[in-house]
Protein backbone atom coordinates (compact mmCIF):
# COMPACT_ATOMS: atom_id res chain seq x y z
CA UNK A 1 0.00 0.00 0.00
CA UNK A 2 1.18 3.47 -0.76
CA UNK A 3 0.61 6.29 1.72
CA UNK A 4 -1.40 8.66 -0.44
CA UNK A 5 -3.68 11.28 0.99
CA UNK A 6 -4.80 13.14 -2.10
CA UNK A 7 -7.15 11.84 -4.78
CA UNK A 8 -6.53 14.17 -7.67
CA UNK A 9 -4.91 17.39 -8.79
CA UNK A 10 -7.25 20.07 -10.13
CA UNK A 11 -4.54 22.60 -10.94
CA UNK A 12 -0.80 22.27 -11.40
CA UNK A 13 1.30 25.26 -12.35
CA UNK A 14 4.95 24.21 -12.35
CA UNK A 15 7.02 25.87 -9.62
CA UNK A 16 4.10 28.02 -8.51
CA UNK A 17 0.88 26.47 -7.41
CA UNK A 18 -1.00 23.21 -7.06
CA UNK A 19 -4.55 22.43 -6.03
CA UNK A 20 -5.53 18.91 -5.00
CA UNK A 21 -8.66 17.35 -3.57
CA UNK A 22 -9.38 14.49 -1.22
CA UNK A 23 -12.80 12.96 -0.80
CA UNK A 24 -13.48 11.60 2.66
CA UNK A 25 -15.30 8.31 2.96
CA UNK A 26 -16.31 5.97 5.72
CA UNK A 27 -14.47 3.23 3.86
CA UNK A 28 -11.31 4.69 5.38
CA UNK A 29 -10.49 2.64 8.40
CA UNK A 30 -8.83 5.32 10.43
CA UNK A 31 -12.06 7.33 10.60
CA UNK A 32 -13.63 4.54 12.63
CA UNK A 33 -11.00 5.00 15.31
CA UNK A 34 -10.91 8.78 15.15
CA UNK A 35 -13.32 8.89 16.84
CA UNK A 36 -15.58 5.88 17.49
CA UNK A 37 -19.09 7.14 16.81
CA UNK A 38 -17.88 10.54 15.60
CA UNK A 39 -15.61 10.25 12.59
CA UNK A 40 -13.45 13.31 11.80
CA UNK A 41 -10.34 13.53 9.63
CA UNK A 42 -7.33 13.82 11.98
CA UNK A 43 -5.62 17.20 11.50
CA UNK A 44 -2.21 15.50 11.31
CA UNK A 45 -3.42 13.67 8.18
CA UNK A 46 -4.73 16.92 6.74
CA UNK A 47 -1.19 18.24 7.20
CA UNK A 48 0.08 15.12 5.42
CA UNK A 49 -2.32 15.80 2.53
CA UNK A 50 -0.97 19.33 2.23
CA UNK A 51 2.60 18.02 2.52
CA UNK A 52 1.92 15.70 -0.43
CA UNK A 53 0.29 18.41 -2.53
CA UNK A 54 3.08 20.90 -1.79
CA UNK A 55 5.86 18.27 -1.80
CA UNK A 56 4.93 17.11 -5.30
CA UNK A 57 4.77 20.74 -6.41
CA UNK A 58 8.31 21.26 -5.06
CA UNK A 59 9.60 17.92 -6.42
CA UNK A 60 8.35 18.60 -9.93
CA UNK A 61 10.47 21.77 -10.17
CA UNK A 62 13.62 19.61 -10.24
CA UNK A 63 11.96 16.86 -12.25
CA UNK A 64 11.69 14.63 -9.13
CA UNK A 65 15.46 14.21 -8.94
CA UNK A 66 15.67 15.66 -5.42
CA UNK A 67 14.53 13.81 -2.32
CA UNK A 68 11.99 16.25 -0.97
CA UNK A 69 11.36 15.72 2.72
CA UNK A 70 8.95 17.59 4.97
CA UNK A 71 11.33 19.34 7.37
CA UNK A 72 9.11 21.64 9.36
CA UNK A 73 5.47 22.52 9.83
CA UNK A 74 5.86 26.27 10.08
CA UNK A 75 2.24 26.91 10.79
CA UNK A 76 -0.92 24.81 10.98
CA UNK A 77 -4.16 26.32 12.18
CA UNK A 78 -7.62 24.83 11.82
CA UNK A 79 -10.95 26.56 12.24
CA UNK A 80 -13.16 23.57 11.61
CA UNK A 81 -13.39 19.83 11.03
CA UNK A 82 -13.72 17.57 8.00
CA UNK A 83 -16.10 14.60 8.05
CA UNK A 84 -17.01 11.65 5.79
CA UNK A 85 -18.92 12.76 2.70
CA UNK A 86 -17.05 16.02 2.54
CA UNK A 87 -14.27 17.09 0.22
CA UNK A 88 -10.96 18.58 1.28
CA UNK A 89 -9.28 20.99 -1.08
CA UNK A 90 -5.57 21.71 -0.69
CA UNK A 91 -4.22 24.90 -2.27
CA UNK A 92 -0.43 25.09 -2.12
CA UNK A 93 1.80 27.94 -3.31
CA UNK A 94 5.60 27.92 -3.55
CA UNK A 95 7.02 30.75 -1.47
CA UNK A 96 10.73 30.13 -2.09
CA UNK A 97 12.87 27.37 -3.51
CA UNK A 98 16.65 26.94 -3.46
CA UNK A 99 19.20 24.14 -3.85
CA UNK A 100 18.72 23.23 -0.20
CA UNK A 101 14.96 23.26 0.11
CA UNK A 102 11.70 25.13 -0.26
CA UNK A 103 8.92 26.80 1.65
CA UNK A 104 5.25 26.72 0.74
CA UNK A 105 2.10 28.41 1.98
CA UNK A 106 -1.24 26.69 1.83
CA UNK A 107 -4.96 26.89 2.43
CA UNK A 108 -7.32 24.06 3.24
CA UNK A 109 -11.01 24.21 2.34
CA UNK A 110 -13.84 21.83 3.20
CA UNK A 111 -16.68 21.72 0.70
CA UNK A 112 -15.45 25.08 -0.55
CA UNK A 113 -15.34 26.78 2.84
CA UNK A 114 -11.99 27.91 4.32
CA UNK A 115 -10.97 25.54 7.09
CA UNK A 116 -7.28 26.02 7.80
CA UNK A 117 -3.85 27.35 6.92
CA UNK A 118 -0.75 25.16 6.58
CA UNK A 119 2.70 26.60 5.83
CA UNK A 120 5.51 24.09 5.33
CA UNK A 121 9.23 23.83 4.80
CA UNK A 122 10.86 21.08 2.77
CA UNK A 123 14.47 19.98 2.63
CA UNK A 124 16.27 18.63 -0.42
CA UNK A 125 18.00 16.23 1.93
CA UNK A 126 21.02 15.44 -0.22
CA UNK A 127 21.97 19.08 0.32
CA UNK A 128 21.42 19.12 4.08
CA UNK A 129 23.51 21.50 6.18
CA UNK A 130 24.71 18.70 8.45
CA UNK A 131 26.51 17.00 5.56
CA UNK A 132 24.76 13.65 6.22
CA UNK A 133 24.64 11.06 3.46
CA UNK A 134 21.42 9.41 2.36
CA UNK A 135 20.82 6.42 0.04
CA UNK A 136 21.34 7.17 -3.62
CA UNK A 137 17.99 5.69 -4.57
CA UNK A 138 15.18 8.24 -4.52
CA UNK A 139 12.98 6.73 -1.83
CA UNK A 140 10.59 9.71 -1.93
CA UNK A 141 9.66 9.76 -5.60
CA UNK A 142 9.83 6.08 -6.55
CA UNK A 143 9.00 4.80 -10.01
CA UNK A 144 5.67 3.54 -8.71
CA UNK A 145 4.91 6.98 -7.36
CA UNK A 146 5.92 8.71 -10.57
CA UNK A 147 3.65 6.49 -12.64
CA UNK A 148 0.82 7.53 -10.36
CA UNK A 149 1.70 11.17 -10.91
CA UNK A 150 1.55 10.66 -14.65
CA UNK A 151 -2.01 9.47 -14.31
CA UNK A 152 -2.69 12.71 -12.45
CA UNK A 153 -0.94 14.59 -15.29
CA UNK A 154 1.26 16.12 -12.61
CA UNK A 155 4.48 14.77 -14.04
CA UNK A 156 5.99 14.29 -17.43
Amino acid sequence: MRWIWIDKFLEFESGKRAVAIKNLTLAEEHLHDHFPGYPVMPPCLIIEGMAQTAGILVGEVRDFQEKVILAKVKRATFDGIARPGQQLRYEADVESITDQGATTTGKVLVDGEPMGVIDLMFSHIDHNVSGLDFPEENFVFTEEFKSLLRTYHAAR
Partner: peptide, 14 residues
Protein backbone atom coordinates in the same frame (compact mmCIF):
# COMPACT_ATOMS: atom_id res chain seq x y z
CA UNK B 1 18.27 22.54 15.29
CA UNK B 2 20.11 22.09 12.01
CA UNK B 3 16.92 22.26 9.95
CA UNK B 4 16.04 25.58 11.60
CA UNK B 5 19.10 27.17 10.00
CA UNK B 6 17.55 26.66 6.59
CA UNK B 7 14.27 28.06 7.87
CA UNK B 8 16.05 31.12 9.28
CA UNK B 9 17.79 31.73 5.94
CA UNK B 10 14.45 31.58 4.08
CA UNK B 11 12.79 33.91 6.56
CA UNK B 12 15.63 36.45 6.57
CA UNK B 13 15.64 36.52 2.78
CA UNK B 14 11.94 37.31 2.80
Amino acid sequence: ESIDFLDIVFRLEK
